[in-house]
Structure formats: structure tokens, C-alpha cells
Simulated scan of single mutants.
Amino acid sequence: MKILFFTHLTEEFPALIDELKEKWKEHSFICARSKDEYLEHALDSHILVYGNPSDDIIKRAAELKLIIVPYAGVGQLNFPLIRSRMISVANSHGNGAVVAERALGLAMACCGRIVEFHNDMKEGNWHRTGDQSRPFDYWYSIAGKKISILGTGSIGKSLSRLLKGFDCSVLGFRKNSGELTDYFDAITTDLDEALRFGDLVFLALPSTKETENIISRDKISLLEGKFVINVGRGSLIEEEPFFDALKSGTVKGAGIDAWYEYPSKENPAVTGSAFPFHELPNVVISPHAASHAPEGKLGQLTGACQVLETYLHNGTVINSITGDY
């Protein structure tokens, strides 16, 4: 089979591709370094390791059997067209532990008011109140707190494991019931229960038709007094009421890595939303960078290679995408 990679990851971690070539000598491995090289090889490839093939390629690539997205997000793909061609799609879960680490960092920065205190101290504000009965402005510890994690996949599991080091009680939310997942104290399929439970609510769900605005305006009231950390997708939580709740202090704080607006050639300097989340002192912002550590990127390519090798070995597609996108 002909396997075509079109991702910067093969240039960053070439040893993984060299290992594939050595192990699977009966197959052809191409690492495209440019769009022209990608287009030259795409039409007769059997497997494509790339996150955003065009509709034209999907229609014309007669031999294409499998698309492996070398990261988690797949919402950019035209699934009706892909499925009409009987092409399988899988993604990589290899960066879950690193994204979980970033989520915990956002939580600690947000609850700890680290960015707020940092910025204020540069101006000489030491956050002493002058009130003898309560002389200090407080930050909030996560130790021993109740935690809700929406999404019990690779990110959610890794995050739950990390939070156990803080003696937290962790409730996971997922759409289907089943066996208890490692490191979670309990699992629920009831969204309201999950939102009510946690002092901190972590969002680690994918973007699907089912999850769009899963935390809608009427659900945001359940987040009163809580911290929200989003490393999933911006579309999980309704934008304007979320901003309003943070601005008013109804939601105590947020750490946000997943956004509503992203840079483009026409508008390269967006701040993530039509609303000024970045101006709120109780919000810590991050430019969708939760996987942007060397370990995270190596994990992405390693995960993609695991999908590929399993398919080459026995034709099984692991991490197969079957939801309604």
C-alpha cells in the first residue's frame, strides 16, 4: 500500500517514519514536504495521514481507504462525502496526557489568580486589603475539591489521574453509561448532575452536532460559583451568556484554551471571541496551545502511527470516528 503523510510532524520526528519504513518494507511511505508534493501523490494513495483533505481529493482518490488525522479534531472533514466513498477515518489520541497537563495548569493559574496577581504586582498592587479582619485577597486551592470532567477519553482520564494527587473527588460525564473508567470516582450520563457536582468543571469533549452548545444559556446558571476550564472546543459552551456570567462573577473564573474565533489571513490578530474575555481579570487565556509541547506533538505522531500499524497488521481501524459530525 501507498501511505502518504502530509504533516510537519514527520519533519520534527523523522525517526518514527524511519522505523515504519524499516518494519513495513512491503509498503511505500511518502512524506510530502509541500502542497504540490502532496497533490502529486494523493490521488493514488491508499492511506492518508493528514488532517484536512479537500473534497476534490476525497472524490478523486480512487484507492483511498483510510484517513488518519494526526490530532484529535475532525470537525473540518466532510463526513457525508467521506462515508459515501466508504473511507474510514481515525484520529490520534497521543497528546492526551500533555493536554491534561495544560488543563491542570490553567486551573491552577485561574484558581490561584496567578496572572491577575502577576499583572497587578507589576503596578505595585500587593493585594492587601487594608481590612484588619481580612487583610489579604485570597486565591483558591484545588486541593480536596469536587471535580467534574466532561469527556472521559484520553484527556479526561489523564486529567483525572493528575487530580488524584490533589485528593479531589472526580465525576466523569459521557453520553453512554458503562464500566467505571480508571481514576474516576463515578461516571454519569446526566449533564445537569455533572455541572452541579464540581467546584471545577473541565471541558474535554469533541465538537460534534451533539456537543454544540451542550452548556447552553439555561445550563450556565448551574455553573454559579464554579471555575470552568475548557480544553475541548469553544462550541461546547454558549459564547455570550458565558462571557456575561464571567463578567458578572456568576461564574467565578475560567481558563480557556478553546475558542470561538481563530486567526485567518484576513484577520490574523483575533482574540478568540467577539466578546472581550481577554479583558476579564478572572479569566486566563491560552491560544489553543494545549498540545503545543514537543511531547504533545511527538504523542500526536506516535498515536497516528499506532493507528496506521494496527491497520497494516490486521485491517482494524482503532480510534475510528463514528459520531455525527
Rank of each mutant, 00 (worst) to 15 (best):
H118P: 10
L104K: 15
L200N: 02
R128Y: 11
L43C: 12
V89P: 01
A90K: 02
A274V: 06
L180S: 12
D55H: 13
K252A: 13
P281I: 12
S169V: 12
V270G: 12
G323R: 13
D56F: 10
R60E: 10
E37N: 15
A293V: 09
L200Q: 03
N91F: 04
E193Y: 05
I149N: 00
D137W: 10
V115F: 14
E12H: 14
N267P: 07
R128L: 12
F277H: 03
G234E: 05
S84F: 10
V89C: 12
H27E: 00
S34M: 12
E224S: 11
E239D: 09
Y50S: 09
G323P: 02
L205F: 07
G151Q: 01
E238A: 13
E179Y: 04
V89N: 06
A90C: 08
S34W: 12
R174V: 01
A72V: 13
S54W: 13
V317D: 01
C31R: 08
S320E: 15
L66Y: 01
F202R: 02
G96K: 01
E224W: 04
L43W: 14
S264H: 07
L66N: 02
L236F: 14
R83Q: 13
T250H: 06
E12Y: 13
N176G: 08
M108I: 15
I285A: 10
D185G: 08
S28W: 01
L223K: 03
S177E: 14
A304W: 00
L203E: 04
P276Y: 05
H313C: 03
L171T: 02
I47C: 06
G249L: 01
C168I: 05
A97R: 02
I147E: 02
S133W: 11
F277Y: 10
I147V: 15
Y71P: 02
S45G: 11
G253W: 01
L205N: 05
V251E: 00
L222H: 13
G253C: 06
N282I: 03
D199H: 06
G144T: 09
V284S: 06
E210S: 14
L81M: 10
T181S: 09
R102Q: 14
N95A: 08
